Computed example of a mutant assay.
Amino acid sequence: MRVSLCLLASGIATFIAFGANAEDLDCNNPVTQADMTACERARQETADKALNAQYKITRAALATLDKDLGADGGAEKALVKAQRAWMDFRDAECEVTGFQARGGTMEPMLVAGCIAGLTDQRTKQLKELAETMGN
């Protein structure tokens, strides 16, 4: 009996440590808190990849603008500065959001969801900026 309990506890600990495979998750209908958190983290990762791709495009557009205007790197440099400030804001804002469930199992889900949402918004902003620069 004691061995069975140890094996069960070990199995649960392994599942918690490694989580379910992303392929096993139904993020359209997550059931457990662990699933909800995993889905928000996957959404955060997807949003981050899209942001990074768009940031490269926007930065290239501003570098081209600098060359066309004969500027000394002003637009691209301003974008880099703004992006760093935005990342600090996003992380701080989402940390505050997490306090709704501070110390609870929902906290990581809230933070990941906040990061994903703000990252999606920033990606749209960067896309609009690149489009206004002619790309």
Rank of each mutant, 00 (worst) to 15 (best):
V3N: 05
V3C: 11
C6I: 15
L8T: 10
A9L: 15
S10P: 05
G11A: 12
G11K: 04
I12S: 02
I12F: 13
A13T: 11
A13N: 03
F15K: 00
F15I: 09
A17M: 03
F18I: 08
G19N: 08
A20G: 00
A22C: 06
E23T: 05
L25T: 08
N28H: 12
P30T: 14
P30I: 15
Q33H: 14
A38F: 14
C39N: 00
C39A: 02
R41L: 15
R41P: 11
E45M: 11
E45H: 10
T46W: 11
D48P: 04
Q54D: 02
K56D: 06
K56P: 04
I57N: 04
I57D: 07
A60Q: 02
A60E: 04
L62A: 05
L65I: 11
D66L: 06
D68I: 13
L69W: 09
L69R: 00
G70Q: 03
D72R: 00
D72N: 03
G73T: 06
E76N: 07
E76L: 11
E76M: 12
K77L: 11
A78T: 08
A78L: 07
M87L: 11
R90M: 12
R90G: 09
A92S: 07
A92R: 01
E93N: 04
E93V: 05
C94T: 07
V96Q: 01
T97Q: 00
A101M: 02
G103P: 04
M106K: 06
E107S: 03
M109N: 06
G113Q: 01
I115R: 01
A116T: 06
G117L: 13
Q121V: 12
T123R: 01
K124A: 11
L129E: 04
E131A: 04
M133T: 15
M133C: 15
G134L: 14
